[in-house]
Amino acid sequence: MYSIEAKDVNFYYGDFLALKNISMQIEKNSVTAFIGPSGCGKSTFLRLFNRMNDLIPNIKLEGKIMVKGEDVYSKNVFVDQLRKEVGMVFQKANPFPKTIFENVAYGLRVNGEKNKKKIEQVVEQSLKGAALWEEVKDKLNRSAFALSGGQQQRLCIARALAIEPSIILMDEPASALDPISTLKIEELIFELKKKYTIVIVTHNMQQAARVSDKTAFFYLGELIEYDNTDKIFTNPQKEATQNYVTGRFG
């Protein structure tokens, strides 16, 4: 069974057809990169996987989005349950105005976890999973805002891990970070892949080439090419893909 499967997806913002007949399968424990110019629909598509587009007015979805074989837009699916399964990390780190500890514990608390010991264990595990524990273990009660941008982004990843998702969506997670912090996020993605399925939207071609197993190139709402990353970056089959990855898109 695929981690994520899209079948004949059309998506509208009002009258505007933002995604055109997209079908795609994403395998478990893999990293898939979505690339394409701004406005091509890659973030829109990503946000369908955990229904982040739901609150936008006048949207319409045709086709199916399946997560672990279940249609996420069926009436039986509760959005909060879906988002426990499909975590998300955004372009800009968005920690809560709370302590480092409370940021990670937040998801557990809103899900009714009261066992202090259990919460402490999960916070430590999640911070370790996000490669942040060694840097913050002695200052867990400090404000999350005291952390650097790169640390804040890893804190957000730890927060996502705390509720034990199986899929993590990353929407340009390193675009606002310096090269060292970017490298740490990329190293983290390699580690996380062992336990999670990761889908990442990125404008950084080299990042897509480095971290992903598969790459999907989108243009004007269409999925132009979806193949192994090695293939996309050495011998893409479509001219549009070649023009984009070599920077000659025009």
Binding site: M205, T234, Q242, T246
Partner: peptide
């Protein structure tokens, strides 16, 4: 330039 695809080849 970190070339890819035809540029890399």
């Amino acid at each position: 330039n970190s070339p890819v695809a035809i540029d890399l080849r």
